[in-house]
């Protein structure tokens, strides 16, 4: 994969007449981990939704240059797993042909107890579901991953384990991770972004 940039230019969004942010500019490079911080309700999730194509910005644009074949995937704020299926099924369904079953099992076992990977997701604990959602985003083919508060519901040790795994699997992809904890930025060796500061002041 060739290096690329994600350019966000002059992006504006308002909800019910209330302006969330106006003229947001960001340039992000592939192969790096960015940590997005800012108080709740500032529009981090909205930015992710726009970048994923789930919502339209009022004005402005964003693009990848050079443009990429593969798309952006995500860890949503909620887990959004198919509850009746096992973690293995969830990951295979999202990754498609790019991932063999043996490799999927091997990767799942790195973060989950092996007995849990063939159980229906609805029988798993909150933390296990979260890890499954993180695994899904990392194992599906993509050029970049947006993670919306991925560490909620994970205990300290699991979080360290997950962070190491993310760093290992990120590769040349672009990672944008929103978080509320300064500590995470250091652990991820990420680049801190606070693009919403000026809008919050208003």
């Amino acid at each position: 994969m060739l290096p690329f940039q994600l350019n966000i230019q002059n992006l504006s969004k308002s909800y019910h007449g209330r302006c969330i942010w106006k003229g947001l500019n960001l340039t992000l490079s592939s192969g790096r981990i960015y940590c997005l911080m800012g108080p709740s309700g500032i529009g981090k999730t909205t930015l992710f939704r726009i970048l994923l194509g789930l919502e339209q910005a009022d004005s402005g644009s964003f693009f990848l240059s050079p443009s990429q074949q593969e798309r952006l995937t995500a860890v949503f704020q909620e887990d959004r797993l198919c509850e009746a299926f096992s973690p293995l099924d969830n990951i295979m369904a999202a990754a498609g042909k790019a991932l063999s079953k043996d490799r999927a099992i091997a990767e799942l076992c790195r973060l989950l107890p092996s007995e849990s990977i063939t159980r229906p997701v609805c029988t798993l604990s909150g933390g296990m579901k979260r890890r499954t959602a993180i695994l899904r985003s990392l194992l599906a083919p993509s050029c970049g991953i947006l993670m919306d508060e991925p560490f909620t519901g994970l205990d300290e040790n699991t979080k360290y384990q997950v962070i190491e795994y993310i760093k290992e699997k990120a590769g040349q992809r672009l990672l944008l991770i929103s978080t509320h904890q300064e500590e995470d930025v250091e652990l991820l060796e990420g680049i801190l972004l606070r693009p919403f500061e000026e809008f919050a002041a208003k």
Binding site: A74, F76, R80
Partner: peptide, 8 residues
């Protein structure tokens, strides 16, 4: 939405 993001 998840299915859309992961191109199901």
């Amino acid at each position: 939405e998840m299915a859309q993001v992961f191109s199901f």
